[in-house]
Simulated scan of single mutants.
Amino acid sequence: MSEPKLHFDPDRPEGKPAKKGKSTTKSSKERRSTRQIPMHRHRLQNGLTIFFYVLFTLFFIVIVMNVGRMNTVIDLANKKEVKANDIAAEIQQSQQIGKIVSFEGNKWLQTFFTHSKNQAEQDKRVKQLNAHLSGSLEISGFDISGKDTVRSVKQVQEIKQETVSHLKEITVYKTTYDVQFVEQNHDRNVQVVLYGIYQDDKMKLIQIPEYLNANKDTGESHKAPYTSEDLEVKGEVISGAEKTKMTQFVEKFLALYCRNDSNLNLVASVQGIDGGTFQTATLTNSVRKNGKVVVQGTYTFYFQESSAYTSAFTLEMRENKGSYFVDKMND
């Protein structure tokens, strides 16, 4: 008969038998618990890592978009600034050209209203005046000064200047001057309108001067009846018997206008030149536009019979009891 085998456990006190199965179960529970804790920590860390990566990516995208947007805004701002600078430079250049046109127009009027008996001086005067006329304009067409006429300028002063039209991208300046002069020992005072452009480094007139009464209120700026295409008003052309009747009315009106007759207010709401005498008139354009009748042309008048002046005119009229009434002239 064999002897039973004894198992010695150094950690177990003597006299206490070993408990079967307990140590094995305990160690297995400890092993399970030690595996589960690290597993939960790894999942949390992975989730946080992914979250921060996504958050960082979103921040990066937002920053890139903002930088791109800022660059776009800066580019637009720079473009607008350049455009604004260009506009400012263009306005400044236009103002400078306007001053040149005004100054040279002033000098031109001083020459125009100066006339002596000396033939050499007369020839020099004609040459200087023609140098500032554009196209087919000639000083002989609107300045009828006798050889014995003596005329001198006392003062030429600009009243106002405005831009009225564009002809083939060329700015037209309408400048109104007050002119005081002496003719045949008589003091005269008129207002003259010049339509000038800046071409070939100097002022050039594109239309003969317009004469206004010296007492006309020019403080208020009126829109000129000229289009950007042409100096003639466009509309329904008037012809035949109506044009004949209109021509007769215009001639009677200009006769009253030149001497500023007391009956002028019966046919017009304008004031005359005063002291002048009407000679002839030529109608170049007569149309009906926006319920109004517009007549354009030229007329000749004089203060002294030996020296006549030719002026352009634009009348805006309305029909009145079988005739006409002038509402505006050269406005």
Score class of each variant (00 low, 15 high):
residue 35 R to C: 06
residue 66 N to H: 13
residue 191 Q to C: 11
residue 164 V to W: 06
residue 261 D to C: 06
residue 325 F to D: 06
residue 227 T to W: 00
residue 92 Q to F: 02
residue 303 F to L: 12
residue 125 R to C: 12
residue 176 T to S: 14
residue 306 S to W: 04
residue 52 F to E: 00
residue 275 G to C: 09
residue 253 F to S: 06
residue 28 S to N: 12
residue 330 N to L: 04
residue 266 L to W: 00
residue 287 V to A: 07
residue 292 K to L: 05
residue 302 Y to R: 07
residue 328 K to T: 08
residue 32 R to P: 03
residue 323 S to V: 02
residue 277 T to G: 05
residue 330 N to E: 13
residue 231 L to S: 02
residue 239 S to P: 10
residue 289 K to P: 01
residue 5 K to E: 14
residue 96 Q to C: 01
residue 51 F to Y: 15
residue 263 N to K: 10
residue 313 F to L: 08
residue 303 F to D: 14
residue 150 V to F: 05
residue 142 F to E: 13
residue 245 K to M: 04
residue 234 K to G: 03
residue 250 V to K: 06
residue 254 L to N: 08
residue 325 F to C: 11
residue 57 T to V: 10
residue 280 T to W: 00
residue 145 S to N: 10
residue 234 K to R: 12
residue 218 T to S: 01
residue 258 C to G: 12
residue 318 R to M: 00
residue 251 E to K: 09
residue 75 D to T: 02
residue 132 H to V: 02
residue 34 T to V: 00
residue 120 A to P: 01
residue 179 V to M: 11
residue 319 E to C: 01
residue 189 N to L: 02
residue 42 H to I: 12
residue 175 T to N: 09
residue 245 K to V: 10
residue 65 M to L: 11
residue 179 V to Q: 08
residue 71 N to G: 07
residue 85 N to G: 13
residue 224 A to N: 05
residue 123 D to G: 05
residue 256 L to V: 07
residue 64 V to Y: 11
residue 141 G to L: 05
residue 49 T to H: 02
residue 86 D to S: 07
residue 212 L to C: 11
residue 87 I to H: 12
residue 85 N to R: 13
residue 285 N to R: 03
residue 12 R to Q: 12
residue 224 A to G: 04
residue 207 Q to H: 15
residue 234 K to L: 05
residue 207 Q to A: 07
residue 68 G to W: 14
residue 166 H to R: 13
residue 42 H to D: 03
residue 95 Q to P: 00
residue 44 L to P: 00
residue 79 K to R: 04
residue 176 T to N: 11
residue 40 H to K: 10
residue 13 P to C: 02
residue 182 V to H: 05
residue 50 I to V: 13
residue 208 I to H: 07
residue 38 P to K: 05
residue 190 V to K: 07
residue 61 I to R: 10
residue 210 E to R: 09
residue 148 D to V: 09
residue 47 G to N: 13
residue 184 Q to W: 10
residue 73 V to A: 14
residue 185 N to H: 07
residue 243 K to V: 00
residue 138 E to N: 12
residue 306 S to V: 15
residue 107 K to D: 15
residue 228 S to D: 15
residue 19 K to I: 04
residue 206 I to T: 14
residue 40 H to V: 10
residue 45 Q to N: 12
residue 253 F to D: 04
residue 57 T to G: 14
residue 122 Q to E: 11
residue 182 V to W: 01
residue 269 S to C: 01
residue 125 R to V: 11
residue 207 Q to P: 06
residue 109 L to W: 00
residue 51 F to A: 12
residue 309 Y to Q: 08
residue 257 Y to M: 11
residue 290 N to Y: 09
residue 132 H to S: 13
residue 136 S to A: 11
residue 210 E to F: 04
residue 39 M to G: 03
residue 149 T to A: 11
residue 264 L to Q: 15
residue 184 Q to P: 00
residue 298 T to F: 03
residue 312 A to G: 13
residue 8 F to V: 13
residue 72 T to E: 08
residue 273 I to K: 12
residue 293 V to W: 03
residue 273 I to R: 14
residue 197 I to E: 08
residue 30 E to D: 03
